[in-house]
Design a binder for these strands. Structure first.
Lengths: 273, 273
DNA sequence: TTAAAGTATATAGTTACTATATAGTCAATA
DNA sequence: TATTGACTATATAGTAACTATATACTTTAA
């Protein structure tokens, strides 16, 4: 080395310091992002401690999703003021990233909870249970919608859920009116719905009231749900009950946990008089 | 379409629903990650709502850094139990990601604070100020270290900081013993140090005591710090003061905020008797 | 002095897309 | 019914940020 008295890291040493590969340092040198302080005639690279500080900033910005080109452009023309501005704007970016991760966490937790519950119940069983009150976000009215209108409604409803970060991993369910049940038009849903933490202004919500509900399950494709409703009808007759208002259907096992519609499990909840 | 009565999304509609491009859906079909429910003879693709639920899981796992191949392998052989296991393991992954982001946030905040402070002071000024007590993490002793030993010490010290997530964006400073100052061996540091929130077991820390300190600044390369110390000596003489123990030097403007060593600013703090 | 360990360049491959060119299909209007 | 514009498809090339591999030179430690 030309300046033997100086304190320089070789490429390998500097790579270890940064916990990255030597190849990555070559690449960073090539694109002008982080070039060694000294490059000898034999091509050997030497880095200083200050460049480690720069690497820390590069890593920070990279982890926040900034492209290397932009990082390079910032570093090559930086002033203290610009550094403050950039880092300050990144603080908001970090906060967004954190709240997105917290949202993802909620979704994962809810999904786990639902699958676990699904594995614990006997899908053949029909029971009467007391359900607590729930606030439900609902779609536009669907009862007489064409396929096209139905698809648009699904899209709108999902956008609505995402817009307010209301999607918490709870599946999107469907509400079937008593008349449609009795007329055996099982595909003719009135609304889509999803559970929400609590009522939020400016969005249409309904309350699924607390009370006694028939809880039944349907295994298989939605389109072949009729036999499951027939089982419910028999149960109702046998126990001298009467259903009222709406049936609430939601997938508790779907493509997320099982393969193929024939293995899906739908939970059916119907309030009784 | 062969089954006109069914509720299918076209590729464009499904892409909008997922907020991704059509091209990405082609790609996901190609790699077998997410294929349409129906592919017509003319090549037209049709997707169902269930596939949106799958997309949500793909997006979740992708956002957590799982490669698409692994996601595909999971989805193709999934069971409810495996889905629970995977999602549960991802909860820890999410928590790690969140705490990493919080750490990055701390580093960014500290860096902003230091640059702001640096812009507020007059680098020519020499003052006497009362500094509060600080806990400092210190490196191994460096005073008579060779360059090689010095480089290893820097590496070890940085690893130590990272290991305990003790690096908070405070620069790494250096401690210079009184004897070395008086002998004008300004490069012969005793220790590296960095500020820590408070004492942590199992790591060597020292306390920089509260008290009166001379605060001076040096603009330019570390190697040319002598004139700045001479200014301090004059100040000491003029005000009939006496320095004691150690000088604490730290960069307040370095390659992170300015270009080139000639623009770096070092803050020098020396306790007085 | 020689072998191991380290350094370099050059080239190809990878992942998860994006962009572009070309062509077939569908649905609403003229 | 014809046609036009909005859609659909495939195929190919390009991109970012690396990683892997081959080949060759240099340094360092035995």
């Amino acid at each position: 080395m030309s300046e033997q008295s100086h304190k320089y890291f070789t490429t390998g040493e500097f790579a270890k310091l940064c916990h990255i590969s030597k190849q990555t340092l070559f690449y960073y040198d090539e694109i002008g992002l982080l070039s060694p302080y000294i490059k000898e005639d034999n091509g050997y690279r030497y880095y200083t401690y200050s460049q480690y500080e720069v690497y820390i900033v590069i890593e920070l910005l990279k982890d926040l999703g900034m492209p290397l080109k932009e990082i390079r452009n910032f570093l090559n023309n930086k002033t203290p003021i610009e550094a403050i501005q950039l880092l300050t704007s990144q603080l908001d970016e970090i906060d967004n990233k954190i709240s997105k991760l917290q949202h993802i966490r909620t979704i994962a937790e809810t999904t786990i909870k639902i699958i676990k519950e699904a594995l614990e119940v006997d899908w053949e069983s029909i029971t009467v249970e007391n359900l607590p009150e729930r606030t439900l976000l609902i779609s536009q009215h669907l009862r007489h919608a064409t396929n096209r209108q139905y698809l648009n409604a699904v899209t709108d409803f999902i956008d609505l859920c995402n817009k307010h970060e209301l999607y918490t991993g709870h599946p999107i369910g469907a509400i079937l009116a008593e008349e449609e049940i009795l007329a055996e038009n099982f595909g003719n849903y009135s609304y889509l719905y999803t559970e929400m933490p609590s009522s939020i202004e400016k969005v249409s919500t309904i309350v699924r009231p607390a009370g006694q509900y028939i809880i039944a399950y349907h295994k298989g494709n939605d389109k072949e749900i009729a036999p499951s409703y027939h089982r419910i009808f028999e149960f109702v007759k046998e126990h001298q009950l009467a259903i009222k208002n709406f049936a609430y259907e939601e997938y508790i096992l779907d493509e997320v946990a099982v393969n193929g519609a024939e293995n899906y499990v739908t939970k059916i909840m119907i309030p009784i008089k």
